[in-house]
Design a protein around this nucleic acid. Structure first.
Lengths: 330, 330
DNA sequence: GGGTTTTATGCAATCGATTACATTTATTTT
DNA sequence: AAAATAAATGTAATCGATTGCATAAAACCC
């Protein structure tokens, strides 16, 4: 029996006689044969893998997104390769190694600081690239986004409805696209509610617990304090509340706090954190699905338009927000 | 110029004349040539990748371990493939696909429920396997472990030194090797301190926040309550404290709590969580290093003994523990 | 039963690199 | 300068599967 027949018995069972097929299967069973993926991939001109560029693998925010990607990819028999985009970029051009189409059949970038142009330089559309969570401003590549602006606006409106009129915001890292979107949402909502945008109530941050704690210190040092604060991430919101607690300031009695993301701990923080829920696993899953479509479709998005999606924001109300004190209500 | 010369210019620069080498490099620069990894791997009989079997990718505990693995692996030019061992196992034999040596040059299992025998059946020592964090009881494969028993004992001794004599423990999942090690550590330390091991003070759990909350409910319902509780994970400790807070019970005033892991939030929880620090990134890094050694060494551990390691436990004291009340001190 | 169509199998090229061996070219030695 | 040695390059086989084309075998038709 020739190797060709074996190959067909495996990848096109109906192009082979039933008896032969059974013989092949029996032999495979007996010898423990497994197809050599490397050889198959070489011949088929694909790699059977997608690479996920993660700004920082250690950041637990991404693990849920990754789980969604992995689930969708493995359903299609695709391997998931992870690469730390910040680290790889630091080590001279190591990141470029991942972008070429002999490494992966597709790329999901969770890192918005990697631009369109960066990918284009390395790959001219092959392999296809999809952004998830983050994206590069003005990109023409498909992206799966969360409604960051709408989410931030929801947070502000919730506080306004509780009677708050002095509302602050803890920003994410300055160069991050999510930071800008969420800040824009906050400003738009403040504006829509007829409240002034007070620059001194925008605290610098970087999504981390420590940044939230620093914002708390800034808040404590203020003569005129916001009565409510929205944070651009749950981690910062928790860091903020934690540091305030150490200073004897109680949330929500003395200040209301809204987070962003709805990470696992938020429900169980003390107090429970009111926040904007981001379906991280779903974002990952959708990104993988879109990418798989692009891979199958030869990289052309069938209708010309990139298959981008925006997932809606929802507010989860917990214990960290309460109606503004009488001073606010005037 | 032949392809052989090009190949040598790249992988053995000193076997080629300097002029030719420069010509090759120039041509590469000009044409944007990249070696086809698939072809190289086929010829070299390797894959250039290691696979990490993660029980649950969405669990943020593992993301740090993964970061350590990725850093060490990418330093060696190895790709990191992630696979969800629970999911892959659920979908019939899909997990076996990852174990063969035409998929990966090595395997790191973070899943102790995958046994020696399971790996042996699929691979007869090729590719090499290393356990990290978890391991299979009685395994002869190398493993990078944390001193779970010692850590749990540290936690208990800390409480005893504070004067606690009624000490409970929230268990991890029943079939988990870490659960057993930590439980053994608790029992050993109680014993060494002359305290009785009270089975009714061992709460069932599964490492999750929700399990901690359930343990809190159980604690609340007890006639005779432990004055201090050690949890087999920080998540459970946080869930425990959170649920107690909702019931109006204060930590550490009414009960002291010690966690296990030192995840990011522990420092900033309210109160800060006293816990056993586990250097997750380092565990991952060491596991990758050991695995890389095995890959290079042809799978033979040079001295016969598997290159296992155990990392020492350290106690981090924060606000969730305080001296026992006078009732305890008698 | 002979011719025609359909189905099943084999042959051999191919994917893109690596490498043992052969050959050519350069360098050293006497 | 010829011989001996060393260095550089080329030739061609190889890794293990896939697949276009050719051929053989079976099924069908009148």
């Amino acid at each position: 029996m020739s190797t060709a027949t074996v190959s067909r018995a495996l990848s096109a069972p109906d192009r082979v006689a039933e008896a032969t097929r059974h013989a092949v299967m029996a032999a495979i069973e007996r010898t423990g044969y497994r197809v050599n993926q490397t050889a198959r991939n070489l011949r088929r001109q694909r790699t059977g893998a997608i690479v996920v560029l993660v700004p920082n693998i250690g950041n637990p925010f991404f693990s849920r997104v990754l789980a969604g990607i992995e689930a969708a990819a493995s359903r299609e028999g695709l391997n998931v390769l992870i690469a730390d985009s910040q680290q790889a970029q630091a080590r001279d051009g190591q990141l470029r190694n991942y972008l070429h189409d002999n490494r992966a059949d597709g790329i999901i970038s969770l890192d918005g600081s990697l631009s369109d142009g960066f990918f284009a330089a390395a790959n001219r559309g092959r392999p296809p690239v999809v952004y998830a969570c983050e994206w590069s401003p003005g990109t023409r590549l498909p992206s799966i986004r969360f409604d960051n602006e709408g989410g931030a606006a929801l947070a502000v409106r919730h506080l306004v409805e509780l009677g708050h009129r002095r509302i602050g915001h803890i920003l994410g890292p300055a160069d991050n696209v999510l930071t800008h979107a969420r800040q824009a949402g906050v400003e738009r909502a403040l504006d829509a509610c007829g409240l002034a945008v007070r620059r001194d109530w925008f605290f610098e941050g970087d999504f981390s617990l420590a940044a939230g704690a620093r914002a708390a210190q800034a808040w404590l040092g203020m003569a005129e304090r916001p009565s409510a604060v929205t944070a651009s991430s749950d981690e910062m919101a928790c860091g903020f509340m934690s540091e305030l607690h150490r200073a004897g300031v109680a949330v929500p009695r003395d200040v209301s706090v809204v987070g962003f993301d709805d990470i696992d701990i938020s429900e169980r923080f003390i107090p429970g954190l009111t926040t904007i829920r981001q379906p991280r696993q779903e974002i990952g899953g959708r990104a993988a699905s879109v990418l798989i479509g692009l891979i199958a479709g030869g990289g052309q998005s069938d209708d010309g338009a990139p298959a981008s999606e925006m997932l809606p924001a929802t507010l989860v109300v917990r214990g960290s927000t309460q109606p503004a004190g009488s001073m606010e209500l005037r």
